[in-house]
């Protein structure tokens, strides 16, 4: 993959910040390619003996993809939060894609741009975990309507692998607010997922 110009990523982040939804779609493949690349290097460095640290990945991608001379505290925060959203997006696309594949055999890809659909179908995720991921996404959408801040927090914690402190930085809110939101969001997700998956 061609090296994405730093200006491109920085510009997309800016556009995204201003509410341009199309920017996100363009950001996904760029960011994903970079994360994969870094993951690959990390594995080589560790001889495959360690599991990946998602946050470290995201930080490394940030340093590489964003023009540091122009980046302020806010850009970094925004990048971190966006990376978590990108991971969620990819994972959910992949999960849906695999479900479709399972149901309809060799369905044509709905859109070739979807990063999730370019992944090999036989990734090491079990069927029931795919179900769980799809249900989790639906629950997050419900949560987004009730409390958008909580859904952002969950995104950072789950999909960005961030700690409470990192989440606070990424979302530009206090750690106390993150803790409170995270505690309540967990119960809401749990209740929703149980209804979806079990009963």
């Amino acid at each position: 993959m061609e090296q994405p110009p730093r200006e491109e990523v920085t510009r997309l982040l800016d556009e995204l910040q201003r509410g341009d939804g199309a920017a996100f779609d363009k950001l996904v493949p760029l960011l994903y390619a970079e994360l994969r690349e870094i993951a690959h290097r990390q594995r080589r460095r560790w001889h495959g003996d360690e599991t990946l640290d998602t946050t470290a990945l995201v930080h490394e991608a940030y340093l590489k993809l964003v023009d540091q001379s122009r980046a302020g505290w806010e850009t970094r925060a925004h990048f971190l939060a966006s990376a978590a959203r990108v991971m969620r997006h990819i994972l959910i696309n992949y999960s849906r894609y695999r479900r479709r594949k399972k149901r309809g055999g060799n369905l044509p890809r709905l859109s070739l741009d979807e990063v999730g659909e370019q992944l090999p179908v036989e990734l090491a995720i079990s069927e029931s975990n795919i179900d769980m991921l799809v249900a989790l996404d639906a629950s997050l959408k419900t949560l987004e309507r009730v409390n958008p801040r909580e859904s952002r927090i969950v995104e950072c914690r789950f999909f960005g692998g961030m700690t409470i402190e990192e989440t606070a930085v990424a979302l530009g809110i206090s750690t106390a607010t993150v803790s409170r939101g995270w505690a309540l969001a967990q119960v809401r997700l749990y209740q929703d997922l149980h209804r979806e998956l079990e009963v």
């Binding site: 994360l35 994969r36 993951a39 599991t51 990946l52 998602t54 990945l57 991971m87 990819i90 994972l91 992949y94 999960s95 999730g116 992944l119 990734l123 090491a124 995720i125 975990n129 769980m132 991921l133 989790l136 789950f158 999909f159 692998g161």
Partner: peptide
């Protein structure tokens, strides 16, 4: 589950 799935996609 999410962490494992992310590792798999990466």
């Amino acid at each position: 589950i999410v962490a494992t799935a992310i590792r798999a996609t990466l």
